[in-house]
Design a protein around this nucleic acid. Sequence first.
DNA 1: TTAGGTGCAAAACCTTTGCCATCCC
DNA 2: GGGATGGCAAAGGTTTTGCACCTAA
Lengths: 131, 131
Amino acid sequence: MQRDTKQKRAILKVLTGTRSHPTAEWIYNEVRNEIPNISLGTVYRNLRLMADAGDILELDMCGAVSRFDARRDNHYHFRCERCGEVCDVDEPVHQELDEKVAKVTGFTVSYHKLVFVGLCRECPGTPISKS
Amino acid sequence: MQRDTKQKRAILKVLTGTRSHPTAEWIYNEVRNEIPNISLGTVYRNLRLMADAGDILELDMCGAVSRFDARRDNHYHFRCERCGEVCDVDEPVHQELDEKVAKVTGFTVSYHKLVFVGLCRECPGTPISKS
DNA sequence: TTAGGTGCAAAACCTTTGCCATCCC
DNA sequence: GGGATGGCAAAGGTTTTGCACCTAA
């Protein structure tokens, strides 16, 4: 069972108090203002705990390692959260989203990456609830 | 200038010949059937060369390191390819895409991750062409 | 009391890089 | 010939883990 510690509270406070999407290293530096002798391992451990519990979001695409694709055109992917397989999805690319977001944000949008996540046909069962 | 070597050809052949989205390690093992003494470094070097040249796609989200977000609801992100900043995008989540893809693929789709890529307002200039 | 958490350091893991020999162009 | 590439091994950077000591419940 998850316990309530000052380290955990401090990490969550830093994460809640920023509008950026910080890395573990950045969070570590911030938290040290409050708990100078906290260790980087503790930051990683708690971020993992909270991400797995669904208390925070971890931004990644397909896990830690890069994957490569000989197709050069932009297209969507599906990743099975049980077996880790990645495959192409036939859904056409919605380029109008790029224009819409460009208009709203004022940014220059070149393209977007989209990954559907769930269970493939070889991995029956209930989706992983992360808790 | 990019040179034409048998290592490069073999790597591209493996990548073209699979419908999976392999990791560098997996490609390395396949290529060794043809070039037993090829080194893993060469595989990485060529994948990077080809990805940077736009000959293949590299599947990743925000670079190597994980980023975290205190928002728990699914939402879209924007990443500036020049300065690396990541920020939230207000565009509502298109959940109907999940159902559509589920219907077409037969997979169970829990959610999708979407990242717009381009240049933020602080990074003027032409988008990075990767070549 | 005790299972879970912490700090520290080492290990694990993926990827890049330096060096020198080799090979395209 | 000369610069790009390959093989090898070492280094680099991020994340995880083992262990002994704490601490919240």
